[in-house]
Write a protein that binds this DNA or RNA. Structure first.
Length: 188
DNA sequence: GATAGGATTCACT
DNA sequence: GTGAATCCTATCA
């Protein structure tokens, strides 16, 4: 039982902070891509903005799975977004990965996004961009991120001078005021 | 069976 | 800053 799993099982509101600094890794076609999670949002079952607010459906069933599996969904007809499922099995909770700081395989990310010659800071600073750059898609729906597979989550360290700030969420129309978005910031 | 709207991104003004 | 692209899901008739 890893520390990471225990942390995720504690629930979305704890996990949204704990996930910051952790590293998302994807190995495909012999290429390794990795990025530190620097922005995330918690979604729980009692949250009107959550996909599982109205109960279990065919689309959101992964959110009710065990902590550590991926919930990938399709949005706005053109983007995929990835969540890390939290809480106990049977509870609909997850943390949306909103932004990464590229660590490894940056060239592959740039190629996947068609981002040649553009600002690096805009490569992974959005949930749709994260999936595109990392090569995450519907095929990863329900994948176990803690099992050491091709797509996995690894513990990360928070660096000196970095702090977690909780802010209202963005991009949604319901329950916007809840401070369930966590951002990793350099305080110096 | 039909329709409204969305946990977004990008290009353009 | 504003608006278009684009399609799946949930919800309603």
């Amino acid at each position: 039982m890893s520390d990471l799993r225990l942390m995720l099982e504690r629930g979305a509101e704890a996990a949204v902070r704990g996930l910051l600094g952790c590293v998302l890794v994807h190995e495909s076609h012999g290429v390794l891509r990795a990025g530190r999670i620097v922005e995330a949002e918690a979604y729980t079952q009692d949250d009107p903005a959550s996909h599982c607010f109205r109960g279990r459906t065919e689309r959101n069933r992964a959110m009710f799975g065990p902590a550590g599996v991926a919930y990938v969904y399709f949005s706005y007809g053109m983007h995929h977004c990835m969540n890390v499922v939290t809480g106990r099995e049977g509870v609909g909770e997850a943390v949306l990965v909103r932004a990464l700081e590229p660590v490894e395989g940056i060239e592959a990310m740039i190629a996947a996004r068609g981002w040649e010659g553009r600002p690096l800071r805009d490569l992974c600073n959005g949930p749709g961009k994260v999936c595109r750059a990392m090569g995450i898609g519907p095929g990863h729906y329900g994948a176990d991120l803690l099992a050491g597979g091709a797509l996995r989550l690894e513990p990360g360290r928070r660096r000196r001078g970095e702090t977690v700030r909780l802010t209202p969420r963005i991009g949604i129309s319901k329950a916007v005021e809840l401070p369930r978005r966590a951002v990793l910031e350099r305080s110096i």
